[in-house]
Design a protein around this nucleic acid. Structure first.
Length: 436
RNA sequence: GGAGAGGUGGCUGAGUGGUUGAAAGCGCACGCCUGGAGAGCGUGAGUACCCCAAAAGGGUAUCGGGGGUUCGAAUCCCCCCCUCUCCGCCA
């Protein structure tokens, strides 16, 4: 009953589905045959059990009629006969449920099909840079890394963050905290005022159904923080800390049937994001680049399928606008099939230049998940013909904070050790520079 | 956390074991009426799945979720979830 890719699509065009899945290079296409087999078994069982149920329903009505007419003896006989049907039905029902579960479990493991405009490739190396904005800034001195800048200016206290929460957390202090807040407000204002998004301030914990809905479950179960209430171990896993606002906000309309006139829906949310990042320790773990908790302003759109890709392009530009207004050098990267996220059909990453790192940092990922998530969360809209269809769901960071912070202080650092605040941010930060 | 009440179709709301997928009202769609609108009248309309080449048609499931009793469950029993009211606690 839970359709991930449309089971009909798999049934009708298995070769196409297999071929598209194969471009991801993860071997998921092997699931297709298993699913088809399950599906066939399921339908055979269903046809049989439904026939029996129809028969039983008829018999029951007949018994009702007999009793009403006072033919108790006859009714008793009929009851006896019908009881046997019940046993057979129960047995078949059990089998149907079993096959259902197996099929659904397989379906949940199938990632989205890459869009036809996605370049083929195996890994991040084959991603395509589609445009570059600006130039890397020049320095008359060796630019410092953000870690040093932040510590010297007292913006972030990593030691105390580690003391209270362990490694992988940041403690923004004083002007550092104010800068974080300024960035959040700047982005929220930009997207709500200029780009037509409605601001949302959502819960930071969600049930597992939401994680499943956006495609983070079942595949990446171990990367999320589950919370427990008190010491009750039974409570563990009933709620999870959100790894991104997408997890909550994309699910806001789950199991609804929207009116077409309500589309497109555009939401913008600031939230902290919590990630276990299992197995990622060791690489770039110092500083603000990879953390268990970071801030992010997220964009979500729910659109008619016809408009999904136009909205996708627009959304990339909404995220780019942040970087442009902050005067940062960045590039837009189109992910290749092998680097695509589980739920996404097409993704652009925004990578901002961090002079102190001497590298680009991913600060935004803008994806069109097409109908994939809508199907998993049973979100539909009624079109002009009264037909229920799945909308496209898009998400994009607009943008992630911590890495943006890195790029910002590294880009705007001065020879005297101060950090200039770019003009667009000054109304929010309140001053023109952060002095040593 | 304690006590109570309740979850039925887009909404309100009837229904306590048998042609009830579910009265009635509102809302909605279409048609008639109208110069046009309204009122009025009529018709239609949930969702998912299965059978059928398709359409037509037929069937199954669905009254918060799951399990049970029964020939038969919206109706009876058990467990869970959620909402509301009162009390307690708390930012």
């Amino acid at each position: 009953m839970l359709l991930v890719l449309d089971i009909k699509q798999i049934r009708e065009t298995p070769d196409f589905v297999r071929q598209r899945l194969a471009t991801r290079g993860a071997g998921d296409e092997a699931l297709v045959d298993q699913i088809l087999e399950m599906d066939e078994r399921r339908r055979r069982l269903l046809t049989e059990v439904e026939r029996l149920k129809a028969e039983r329903n008829r018999a029951s009505k007949e018994i009702g009629r007999m009793l009403a007419e006072g033919k108790t003896a006859e009714a008793e006989v009929r009851k006896q006969e019908t009881r046997v049907l019940g046993d057979r039905i129960a047995e078949l029902d059990r089998q149907v449920m079993e096959v259902d579960q197996q099929r659904d479990a397989l379906m949940l493991r199938i990632p989205n099909l890459p869009h036809e405009t996605v370049p083929l490739g195996r890994s991040a190396e084959e991603n395509q840079v589609v445009r570059v904005h600006g130039e890397p800034p020049r320095f008359e001195f060796p630019p410092r890394a953000h870690l040093e800048l932040c510590e010297r200016l007292g913006l972030v206290d990593f030691a105390r963050a580690a003391k209270v929460a362990g490694s992988g957390f940041a403690l923004y202090m004083g002007r550092g905290a104010r800068l974080e807040r300024a960035l959040i407000r700047f982005m929220l204002d930009l997207h709500t005022r200029d780009h037509g998004y409605t601001e949302v301030w959502p819960p930071l914990m969600v049930g597992p159904a939401c994680l499943e809905g956006v495609g983070q479950f079942p595949k990446f179960r171990d990367q999320y923080y589950g919370v427990a209430e008190g010491d009750d171990p039974l409570q563990l896993g009933r709620l999870y800390l959100i790894p991104t606002a997408e997890t909550v906000v994309a699910n806001l309309h789950r199991e609804e049937i929207l009116r077409e006139s309500e589309l497109p829906i555009r939401y913008c949310a600031y939230t902290p994001c919590f990630r276990g990042e299992a197995g990622a320790a060791g690489v770039g773990t110092r500083g603000l680049i990879r953390m268990h908790q970071f801030d992010k302003v997220e964009l979500i759109q729910i659109t008619r399928p016809e408009e999904g890709y136009a909205a996708h392009e627009a959304m990339v530009q909404h995220a780019e606008r942040v970087l442009q207004m902050l005067g940062l050098h960045y590039r837009v990267v189109l992910l290749c099939s092998g680097d695509l996220g589980f739920a996404s059909a097409k993704t652009y990453d925004l990578e901002v230049w961090a002079p102190g790192q001497g590298s680009y940092l991913e600060v935004s990922s803008v994806s069109n998940c097409e109908e994939f998530q809508a199907r998993r969360m049973r979100l539909r809209f009624k079109d002009a013909h009264g037909l229920n269809r799945h909308p496209h769901i898009l998400n994009g960071s607009g943008t992630a904070l911590a890495r943006l912070y890195v790029a910002l202080v590294e880009t705007y650092q001065q020879a005297d050790g101060s950090v200039l605040i770019p003009p667009a941010l000054r109304p929010y930060y309140g001053e023109e520079r952060i002095l040593p």
